[in-house]
């Protein structure tokens, strides 16, 4: 979109930290503020910044839009799949206590997995909407 060198360089500097922070928020959500929703949005924001500084076409080569819809579905499936897995293991839907030897560890794994699902879906959908809007302007 824009060939301003200042924007490109600053974007290049910032994007790795934004993506890293998104991952931190994703996996540290149990201990600090944050979780899947925020992490997904942050990750999408990093990619959107890339799209703004380097052009939408470059961002689409980085993350092919055809990949995003399956990813969005994968997140929901992961979330629902954890629920089904707990059901198959003999407990209620989304009762994570059976995922490991003791209940507390099971809860940890369950929360980690469903937060990952939320993060994947949110990031994919945000990028999907962004690409859908920007790919229409000519």
């Amino acid at each position: 979109m824009n060939d301003d060198i200042v924007l490109t360089v600053i974007g290049k500097l910032l994007i790795p930290f934004i993506l890293l922070f998104a991952l931190y928020v994703q996996f540290h959500g149990d201990f600090g503020p944050g979780g899947g929703f925020q992490a997904g949005v942050l990750f999408a924001a990093g990619i959107i910044l890339y799209a703004l500084t380097n052009g939408t076409a470059a961002a689409m080569r980085l993350i092919p839009p055809g990949l995003l819809a399956p990813l969005a579905a994968l997140g929901v499936l992961l979330y629902g799949g954890v629920g089904v897995a707990t059901m198959l293991l003999g407990r209620h839907f989304l009762n994570y206590s059976v995922l490991a030897q003791d209940a507390v560890h099971g809860q940890h794994y369950g929360i980690l997995l469903i937060e990952l699902g939320v993060g994947i879906t949110v990031a994919a959908v945000m990028l999907l909407i962004f690409f859908a809007f920007t790919s229409r302007e000519d």
Partner: peptide, 16 residues
């Protein structure tokens, strides 16, 4: 804290 063991209570309520 005993049931979920996650320090951030918001996460435990939200996710579990």
């Amino acid at each position: 804290p005993g049931e979920i063991g996650v320090p951030n209570m918001v996460t435990s309520v939200l996710a579990s």
